Simulated assay, not measured.
Amino acid sequence: MVNSKFEFTNIKCYCPVDKFCHVEYCYLKSVNRSYKYFSARSNIHQNPITNFTVNLALLKRYNGYKPFLYNFTVDGCKFLGNSKAANPVSKYFFEFFAPYMNANHKCPYDHDLIIEKLPASSMDYRLSKLLPFPEGDYLFNITWLIIGIPHGNIQIYGSLS
């Protein structure tokens, strides 16, 4: 039997439009050798948000990061309004973050967006047990768009070995 293990290697968060939001914190924390988690908080200055889209691109490192398997865009308000009828791939990736974030309700959003203590073990389970991915270095690039303009971005780098 072969076992894989996912580990975070880096996290980058930014808001390209300063008037829209400010990243308060975005970090990886290693509690011990086996427990590492990711936390981020973005302060939203233009509330309420009533319409947005999310683009998720999964990239794998070959000779630089190249597109791998998934790159899709979802209407965020429509998805969160009825996630049971949503695309199974977008639902699969949303469930990586849903238990650890406060953005899992219907629009409008009138509060800061928070992802708190997303453990590497959760990502490990979803990437190696639930739907096994091949070993390698990955980048999850998540971009929030409003009227087609990028307003927020999280890049999660990890290694599956």
Rank of each mutant, 00 (worst) to 15 (best):
S4V: 03
S4W: 14
K5W: 05
K5G: 04
N10G: 09
N10I: 08
K12C: 11
K12E: 13
K12D: 10
Y14Q: 09
C15I: 05
P16L: 13
P16G: 11
V17A: 09
D18V: 13
D18H: 11
D18M: 13
D18L: 14
K19P: 10
C21Q: 04
H22F: 11
E24S: 14
E24P: 09
L28T: 02
K29E: 09
V31G: 06
Y35L: 07
Y37G: 00
S39I: 06
S39N: 13
A40I: 05
S42I: 12
N43Y: 11
N43I: 11
H45W: 15
N47W: 15
N47C: 11
P48T: 09
I49F: 03
T50D: 12
T50L: 09
T50G: 12
F52D: 08
F52R: 14
V54H: 10
N55V: 13
L56K: 05
A57N: 15
A57Y: 14
L59V: 02
R61D: 04
G64A: 07
G64Q: 10
G64M: 06
Y65T: 00
K66V: 05
F68T: 00
L69P: 06
L69I: 08
Y70M: 04
Y70G: 01
F72N: 02
T73I: 07
V74K: 02
G76N: 04
C77M: 02
K78Q: 08
G81D: 10
N82H: 08
S83A: 12
K84P: 09
K84W: 12
K84M: 11
N87H: 10
K91R: 15
Y92T: 01
Y92D: 03
Y92H: 07
F93I: 00
F93H: 00
F94E: 01
F96H: 06
F97T: 04
F97G: 03
P99G: 02
P99T: 02
P99F: 02
M101I: 08
N102I: 05
N102D: 05
N102Y: 06
A103D: 01
A103E: 00
N104T: 07
N104W: 01
K106T: 03
K106P: 00
K106S: 01
Y109C: 04
Y109V: 03
D110G: 07
H111I: 03
H111L: 02
D112V: 00
D112E: 00
I114T: 08
E116R: 10
K117D: 08
K117F: 02
L118V: 09
A120H: 06
A120Q: 11
A120I: 01
S122I: 04
S122W: 11
Y125F: 08
K129T: 12
K129R: 15
K129D: 12
L130A: 06
L130I: 07
L131R: 14
L131A: 13
P132V: 04
P134F: 01
E135F: 13
D137H: 12
Y138R: 01
Y138H: 02
N141A: 14
I142P: 08
W144H: 14
I146V: 12
I146E: 08
I147Y: 04
G148W: 11
I149P: 14
I149Y: 12
P150Q: 08
H151A: 03
H151F: 14
G152W: 02
G152Y: 05
N153Q: 15
I154T: 12
Q155W: 10
Q155T: 03
I156S: 03
G158M: 03
G158E: 01
S159P: 10
S159V: 09
L160T: 01
L160P: 01
S161E: 13
S161W: 12
